[in-house]
Design a protein around this nucleic acid. Structure first.
Lengths: 205, 205
DNA sequence: TATTATACATTCATTGGTGTATGTAAAGAG
DNA sequence: CTCTTTACATACACCAATGAATGTATAATA
């Protein structure tokens, strides 16, 4: 076998990750063999084992290529003025939903992580990332809702923490629902409309 | 081997299902061998293959022993007067959350189905049940929200369909969040509080 | 230019899991 | 009281998948 240049090696690495996405999506993570992934990528298992230690590491690398929805929200919030906390939160939500609607890779990877992956043993590491990120997002949005409450912008029926939890749950549910694309609802259309109405209902009347 | 009486056979069947729950929860569905389940149940693989054709069938039987949250909601709604549609929907939501909080088996099975199971090939059948059930629930709640709108009880910012989708998404997210019990929020306390505030915000001001 | 490290392909040994076939002792039917 | 069926246990054959070992041609390096 002719040795590849560094660029070409990087290409095959990404080809393997692309193949992993495709096969993981089609057959589920634990039901796919590294042989299948290698075949899909047009290489042998040797190449896979060269670039990745084992399947969990490959899976994690695949996941790392995309930003998770909650990471999108955190990033968006960091770039926000934060003078109007409710508007900022709403924008970060709709932004995350729109990214899901646009980016097919993101949808596919999130779909793998939510519906085609078992969170035990090795895979728990992958879950930790999402959990930690959701945790930070929850804390941050609770802070923003607190500020909104201080500014007398949050409807009194909502506790800041309740609003934060509900927002996160709503986003999670919208994303899950959007992934069941068969006659489900779309991210941009239905999802954003729900977020809009929801944030309207959070405001003082 | 001494042959068991019918009652005893039924006992071992349930012992196998109990063992399946335990091991599926601990190791994930596709990473557990029927040998592990048999050992946990105190029998051999012969007993497992006698009662169940293969792993997917065993898994489906395990899932069939509990009502899924959305099935709880549908059942609760069927027993409701339906003169106050918003109240009825709210009650069915809180009822489902309370059942999740109380019933450990239900939590464990739902946790398996949401976090420890890959939905491909054989397992798609199990998912279909939940999908179909969510579909019916969505249609029914949209109808109830329509009625609420006709009665001028639904805040005008919500379309009946949007309200139905948001309610379902919120429930899905609350259930998922409740399953991540590590410093997450509880079903009864936080979950119900969110549902209460949410349904308050759906009403006309 | 000689040498070394790289980027794989190929081969191999091992194993864990599956499905089936067979054994068997007691339960239940007549 | 037999005869059949039940409810398993045991044994067997058979992959499919893994991980490591080895081979190898070429980039990179000095």
């Amino acid at each position: 076998m002719a040795r590849k240049t560094k660029d070409e090696a990087e290409k095959t690495r990404h080809a393997i990750l692309d193949a992993a996405e495709t096969v993981f999506y089609a057959r589920g993570v634990s039901h796919t063999s590294l042989e299948e992934i290698a075949a899909e990528a047009g290489v042998t298992r040797g190449a896979v084992y060269w670039h990745f230690k084992d399947k969990p590491e490959l899976c994690e690398a695949m996941a790392q290529r995309v930003f998770l929805p909650h990471e999108d929200m955190l990033a968006k919030l960091a770039a926000q003025p934060s003078t109007a906390p409710l508007d900022d939160l709403k924008k970060s939500c709709t932004h995350a939903l729109n990214l899901m609607a646009r980016d097919k890779r993101r949808r596919q990877v999130v779909s793998i992580l939510l519906l085609r992956c078992e969170y035990v043993d090795d895979m728990l590491g992958i879950m930790k990332r999402n959990t930690a990120c959701k945790q930070r997002m929850l804390a941050l949005s609770e802070k923003l809702f607190s500020r909104a409450r201080d500014l007398n912008m949050l409807a009194p029926r909502w506790t800041p923490r309740q609003a934060a939890v509900a927002t996160q749950a709503l986003m999670t549910g919208l994303i899950m629902g959007g992934l069941e694309q068969r006659q489900g609802f779309g991210f941009s259309t239905m999802g954003v409309a729900c977020i809009e109405a929801f944030f309207d209902s959070l405001r003082v009347d």
